[in-house]
Design a binder for these strands. Structure first.
Lengths: 143, 143
DNA sequence: TTTGCTGCAAATGCTTTGCATGTAG
DNA sequence: CTACATGCAAAGCATTTGCAGCAAA
């Protein structure tokens, strides 16, 4: 149950938080912007203020429940933190996001950080390109 | 000479463009925000409007002369495009940026993109951590 | 009841744009 | 002379914050 995760994060169990967590966990879409979360909830008839969406997503991030990514540089997108780490491949045409993971890369990153005397906290690997899928001929706005 | 690069990019040779290109090529600092470029020029007694700095940096980026990075998510930084590709390691404490390159990682990225049917255009690999350098005890604002 | 949460509107910070003036070619 | 550049001020967008009213524990 989602309630448990909120409690573990030291957050009160409130309706907006449950709705947002539920949307991220069971919704159709992934890698949603705050605005997209706001809209998705509105479309479900669940009205939550945009400021609250921002606040809750930030709290979730601080609690480690979600991760924030900047694929485009001007708008953050959020995804539920998954048990298995992965990186991202973004299509420049349709903005679709693909996930992948690669142990060799992870390993090399650790070696590099080590050799430079760094204690690694986090990292982001974003690949940008064009997916050749037939369905990717038109631009889809994933705002 | 810098003039040649501007000409090759189809840009008129103007004073602001030369000053900015020169700053990036021969200045002390690297990975500068637009604001930082504006300030650095002002400190040199060279006044260039902030809007012009933004416009010129964007034109340089389009021409492939500079690269734009989002290390922090809310402010872009720019660096001269170098002949040798490299990725970045950012210290969470002092915001210092270190560069590195790793052929294995580059190679794996290509394999991943290939296997997912992607034509790769670009990528960003950012490592975040704490550098253990003695000089990194205080927070330095690299604004 | 107390502490923390929500919604709204206003504020913020980075970046872009409109427009009148200036200047490279 | 013409097309493109510049500077300023205003606008734009994503995100944050202040505050009064609400709700969870």
């Amino acid at each position: 149950m989602e309630e448990h995760q909120l409690k573990a994060a030291g957050l009160k169990i409130t309706s907006p938080r449950l709705k947002i967590l539920n949307l991220l966990a069971h919704g159709e879409l992934d890698h949603l912007s705050a605005e997209a979360v706001y809209q998705a909830l509105k479309d479900l008839g669940e009205d939550v203020g945009l400021a609250t969406v921002y606040r809750v997503l930030t709290q979730f991030e601080e609690a480690g429940l979600v991760e924030r990514h900047f694929f485009s540089g001007n708008q953050a997108v959020f995804e539920l933190t998954s048990d298995s780490h992965h990186d991202h491949l973004v299509c420049n045409q349709c903005n679709k996001v693909f996930e992948f993971s690669n142990d060799k890369i992870e390993q090399e990153q650790a070696i590099i950080a080590e050799s430079l005397g760094f204690v690694l906290n986090d990292h982001r690997l974003h690949l940008y390109g064009d997916c050749k899928n037939p369905q990717c001929t038109h631009k889809i706005q994933s705002k």
